Computed example of a mutant assay.
Amino acid sequence: MIALGCDHGGYELKQEIIAYLEKNHLEYKDFGCFSKEAVDYPEYAKLVGHAVAGGECEKGILICGTGIGISITANKIKGVRAALCSDCFSAEATRLHNDANILAMGGRVVGAGLALKIVDIFLNTPFSGDERHARRISKIED
């Protein structure tokens, strides 16, 4: 299951991602927000981060205006490896090398077409499992 969260700056892009997930029959849990009314992004980053770190959801997607604040907040949660991506190469590399479990994007930075490609790559790229990458991840977790 995919955990979704956004603030008002990411609401419209989250709706596009929900349509993509539904079209591809992927289960998700929407932690909000649920409108374009101004809210504080840390609340949603924490909800999604804890859902992923706690095992309720396998991966997460977070969106705020730039993706910066929401990714910083999520990364404060032990077990979360949130990666801010605005291109396809980074989305693939962060899954292959970092085993990132949360994708962060900026709703005011990335258009819907590119964002959906990034989501597709992030969700469908497995961790490489290479020893050097696993070793580096364990150093992050220490």
Results as ranks from 00 to 15, higher is better:
residue 22 E to T: 15
residue 22 E to C: 09
residue 22 E to R: 15
residue 23 K to M: 11
residue 27 E to K: 15
residue 28 Y to T: 11
residue 28 Y to W: 12
residue 29 K to M: 10
residue 29 K to G: 02
residue 31 F to I: 03
residue 33 C to N: 10
residue 37 E to C: 03
residue 39 V to C: 13
residue 39 V to N: 05
residue 41 Y to T: 01
residue 41 Y to E: 04
residue 42 P to A: 06
residue 42 P to M: 03
residue 42 P to C: 06
residue 43 E to W: 07
residue 43 E to F: 11
residue 45 A to R: 01
residue 45 A to I: 00
residue 45 A to C: 07
residue 46 K to E: 13
residue 47 L to D: 02
residue 47 L to S: 09
residue 48 V to W: 03
residue 49 G to M: 05
residue 49 G to Y: 03
residue 51 A to F: 01
residue 53 A to R: 02
residue 53 A to P: 01
residue 54 G to V: 02
residue 54 G to D: 09
residue 55 G to K: 02
residue 56 E to S: 02
residue 56 E to D: 13
residue 56 E to R: 07
residue 56 E to L: 06
residue 59 K to N: 12
residue 62 L to D: 02
residue 62 L to K: 08
residue 64 C to E: 09
residue 64 C to L: 13
residue 64 C to F: 05
residue 65 G to Y: 08
residue 65 G to Q: 10
residue 67 G to V: 08
residue 67 G to W: 02
residue 68 I to T: 14
residue 68 I to S: 04
residue 69 G to V: 06
residue 69 G to Q: 06
residue 69 G to Y: 12
residue 69 G to L: 12
residue 70 I to L: 11
residue 71 S to P: 04
residue 71 S to V: 03
residue 73 T to G: 11
residue 73 T to Q: 15
residue 73 T to W: 09
residue 75 N to H: 11
residue 75 N to V: 07
residue 76 K to V: 08
residue 77 I to T: 06
residue 77 I to G: 09
residue 78 K to D: 12
residue 79 G to T: 10
residue 81 R to W: 11
residue 81 R to Y: 13
residue 85 C to F: 04
residue 86 S to C: 15
residue 86 S to A: 13
residue 86 S to R: 08
residue 87 D to G: 03
residue 87 D to A: 08
residue 88 C to N: 11
residue 90 S to G: 12
residue 90 S to T: 15
residue 91 A to H: 00
residue 91 A to V: 00
residue 92 E to C: 12
residue 94 T to K: 02
residue 94 T to Y: 02
residue 96 L to P: 05
residue 98 N to V: 03
residue 98 N to G: 09
residue 98 N to Q: 06
residue 99 D to T: 13
residue 99 D to L: 06
residue 99 D to Q: 11
residue 101 N to K: 10
residue 101 N to G: 09
residue 102 I to H: 05
residue 102 I to A: 08
residue 104 A to V: 04
residue 104 A to L: 08
residue 106 G to I: 06
residue 108 R to I: 04
residue 109 V to D: 03
residue 109 V to T: 14
residue 110 V to H: 00
residue 111 G to E: 14
residue 113 G to S: 11
residue 114 L to T: 04
residue 116 L to Q: 07
residue 116 L to E: 06
residue 117 K to I: 05
residue 121 I to M: 05
residue 125 T to N: 07
residue 125 T to M: 07
